[in-house]
Every structure is written in structure tokens, then in C-alpha cells.
């Protein structure tokens, strides 16, 4: 298991707290992620798991504590921007660019942010689309693709910038049940290829089969964490037990 790895963590949260107005959503969260690890965050809605992900990706700033991601101190406002373009994120709502076809979605950041030539960007984009099994849909616009295909284009777009870490924020929650499999399959392949991944999901099957470590969050704190077999078979925390009972028995 990767957590036994004593090397430098690629993500390091120390004493992280966050409030939105009067609501405290995270309190004193400490969390390390090792390179190549697949970490799955589970918990009820409002438990703070998506906020952890948004702080790691630089979309939100912690009120207190230290956040190191890919050696960038995100708690330091002057340096936080350095993370942009070095991590990937896949959103529940896909967030594809509706005015660009699949290829244009992937090449945009390569051309504008990475300053690649259109020909090089196109080549890399086609490789990324091929990786998610959509090379034959390159000319399709988001509106012409199924939800599962759209999410795979979003994954290809994130992969094309060669991120050090991939974040997934409920990537399958907006999909029809029969389309979930094609997306989790792509995520599983990425995990096998050694990508560092932090995944917020309600897909307990994915957590159980693919995670190196499962973190259960409750009311803004990490209530319990461990290997999936331990978390799913023999959870120690009563709240973990209740949560798993609710999501697995419906």
C-alpha cells in the first residue's frame, strides 16, 4: 500500500480550516497523499470532502493551515498561482466548452497556456482522446455527445496538460446509471498507470476496488481512514459504519 511509502508526499495538508460565512466546513484537517496513490474521499453531502478537493486544486483558499501541492504552497497567496496548469480536475457538471468540439476543448489550453503550435497541440489532443476511447469523436461538439462521452472528453482535456495529480469531484454523479461504467473504467485505467488521484465519489464499488486508501469525512473532519478492505469490512468509527450502511443498503 502506498501509504507505507515514507517519501515526500505530493499533497500535504496541515491544520486546514475553512468557513463559508458563519458555517465552518473544515476544521483542522491533516492529510498526506503519496505520489501514485489513489485516495478516495467519502462522506455525506456537506461533510467537507468537495471543499478539501477544491482547496487542493487551488479553487478555494484555506482560512488557516498549510497546503502543499506538487511543492507549491497554496496557502501563500503570492505563489498559489503556480499550481495552475499542473493539476487536472474533472467536475460533476463536465464543464466542457460548449462552443468548441472535443478536439478544440482539449487543444485550447495547450495552445493558449502552453504555447504549443496548433499541429503539436492537435497531435497531443488526439492521443489524449484516444486514451479515453474517443479518438473517433474528435469533431463532435459537447451537445452531440452522451454524458459519459462528455465526461471522458473532460478527462482527456485534463490529461493533455500532463498534470502531476488528477482530482475528480463527483465525476459520475450527473450521469445516467448506465453511463457510469465507461467513466469509472477510464479512471481505473489511469489508476493502474500510476496517476496520483484524489477522488470524491459516491461510487462505493470504485472506492472498494480501486482506492489505495479511503478517507471518511464527517462534519468537516476526517473521522476515519484506512485501506478499503478495512474501511468497508470492519470500520472502527460508528459514524463510518452508519454512513456505509446507508449508502450500501439502498
Amino acid at each position: 500500500m502506498s501509504t507505507a511509502n515514507n517519501g515526500e508526499p505530493i499533497i500535504n495538508l496541515r491544520g486546514v480550516s475553512k468557513s463559508f460565512g458563519a458555517t465552518q466546513v473544515l476544521r483542522d484537517v491533516n492529510l498526506d497523499v503519496q505520489p501514485g496513490e489513489v485516495l478516495v474521499l467519502i462522506g455525506a453531502s456537506g461533510s467537507g470532502k468537495s471543499t478539501v478537493l477544491r482547496i487542493m486544486s487551488g479553487l478555494e483558499t484555506a482560512d488557516a493551515g498549510e497546503v502543499w501541492v506538487n511543492r507549491v504552497p497554496l496557502h501563500d497567496a503570492r505563489r498559489a498561482k503556480d499550481i495552475r496548469g499542473h493539476v487536472g480536475m474533472v467536475f460533476q457538471q463536465f464543464n466542457l466548452f460548449p462552443h468548441k468540439n472535443a478536439l478544440g476543448n482539449v487543444t485550447l489550453a495547450l495552445i493558449k497556456a502552453r504555447k504549443m503550435s496548433p499541429a503539436d497541440a492537435r497531435k497531443r489532443a488526439l492521443e489524449a482522446l484516444d486514451r479515453v476511447g474517443l479518438a473517433d469523436r474528435a469533431e463532435h461538439y459537447p451537445g452531440q455527445l452522451s454524458g459519459g462521452q462528455q465526461q471522458r472528453v473532460a478527462i482527456a482535456r485534463a490529461l493533455a496538460v500532463e498534470p502531476g495529480i488528477m482530482f475528480f469531484d463527483e465525476a459520475t454523479s450527473a450521469l445516467d446509471p448506465e453511463l457510469v461504467g465507461e467513466v469509472t473504467e477510464v479512471m481505473r485505467t489511469l489508476a493502474r498507470d500510476g496517476m496520483t488521484m484524489v477522488v470524491v465519489t459516491h461510487e462505493m464499488g470504485f472506492a472498494r476496488k480501486t482506492a489505495d486508501r479511503v478517507v471518511f469525512m464527517d462534519k468537516g473532519v476526517i473521522a476515519e481512514q484506512g485501506a478499503p478492505e478495512q474501511m468497508f469490512v470492519n470500520p472502527q468509527n460508528e459514524r463510518t459504519r452508519q454512513f456505509l450502511h446507508r449508502v450500501l443498503d439502498h
Binding site: S57, G58, L59, R84, G85, H86, V87, G88, M89, F91, N95, L108, A109, K112, A113, R114, A154, R157, A158, V161
Partner: peptide
């Protein structure tokens, strides 16, 4: 948000 993450 996605544009920011992509480095634009």
C-alpha cells in the same frame, strides 16, 4: 474554474 485549473 476549469479554465483556471487548465492554466489559462
Amino acid at each position: 474554474e476549469v479554465s483556471q485549473i487548465l492554466g489559462l
